[in-house]
């Protein structure tokens, strides 16, 4: 019985999640400029186009810039928020956590409108800074959550041990708590980066032509001219995401090894 459930769920999830991707991705190597099967020969031309013709490379670099900036800002905001929340009382923790996580719950369309309006009013709408700030706000809750998780996972006896050896609260925080929570910061930063990197809704509201990000370029490419280049770009993006996933996994493994007590 449990074997049957195992196979049914495995097959269904593969069908829904992986099959569409696997069906589409080979078309990146198709010689025909139409996205249809059967394939007509093998070519890497679409990848060449992706690297040489606009809008792909500039959009990719824009995305990197925005994602990097957003991740840095998100780590500062989310990290500080998590540390402050940890130091407050139990009731305060519930309220503060709710507040800091709220950007995840609010629909991105609503956020997009709000950002456009607010940044426009403040006088820096449509530019690089507005995108970084908006994505930082989307990424901060992720940093907050992962830092909170690693702070909560710390053995409270470590802090007590440091106290018994004469370390003041600030010294304990700097030498024990912060270094041990570092994997949480790294994970959070990575999450924030990835989130910004493939965020499209808020970016549509805010991006100006010169600050177009890769997801927007893909989105408009899909609308304007349906070429295998899109698939080639999508394939490379998937590989990049896979790489991030592996790094994330490695980070988590490492933190588990280090805090493993006997």
């Amino acid at each position: 019985m449990s074997r049957a459930i195992y196979w049914i769920s495995l097959v269904l999830s593969m069908l829904f999640l992986a099959l569409p991707l696997l069906l589409v991705l080979p078309l990146a190597f198709n010689e025909s400029s139409f996205l249809t099967y059967p394939m007509e020969g093998f070519t890497l031309d679409w990848f060449k186009i992706a690297f040489t013709q606009p809008p792909w490379m500039p959009a990719f670099l824009n995305s990197l810039k925005v994602a990097f900036g957003a991740a840095v800002v998100a780590v500062v905001i989310g990290g500080l928020a998590a540390m402050g929340t940890m130091l407050s009382g139990r009731f305060g923790q519930i309220i503060l956590s709710g507040l800091f996580i709220s950007p995840i719950v609010i629909p991105s369309v609503v956020l997009g409108v709000a950002f456009t309006y607010a940044f426009g009013r403040a006088g820096f709408g449509g530019g690089y800074i507005s995108l970084v700030l908006a994505h930082a706000i989307l990424g901060a809750p992720l940093v907050f959550l992962s830092v909170m998780t690693s702070l909560k996972g710390l053995d409270p006896e470590l802090e007590r041990a440091a106290a018994s050896m004469g370390a003041s609260r600030a010294y304990r925080f700097r030498t024990v708590t912060l270094p041990l929570a570092a994997p949480g910061f790294m994970t959070g930063a990575l999450f924030a980066f990835v989130t910004s990197f493939d965020e499209v809704v808020v970016a549509l509201f805010l991006a100006a032509p010169q600050s177009t990000t890769l997801p927007i370029a893909l989105f408009s490419g899909l609308r304007d001219r349906l070429e295998p280049t899109i698939i080639a770009v999508a394939l490379m993006l998937s590989l990049l995401s896979l790489m991030f996933l592996l790094v994330l996994n490695w980070l988590q493994q490492r933190s588990r090894y280090k805090t493993r007590g006997k």
């Binding site: 470590l158 440091a162 018994s164 805090t259 007590g261």
Partner: peptide, 12 residues
Amino acid sequence: GLVFQGYALFPH
């Protein structure tokens, strides 16, 4: 000085 049940050594 204090020796904890779980030793509480700093893992890092």
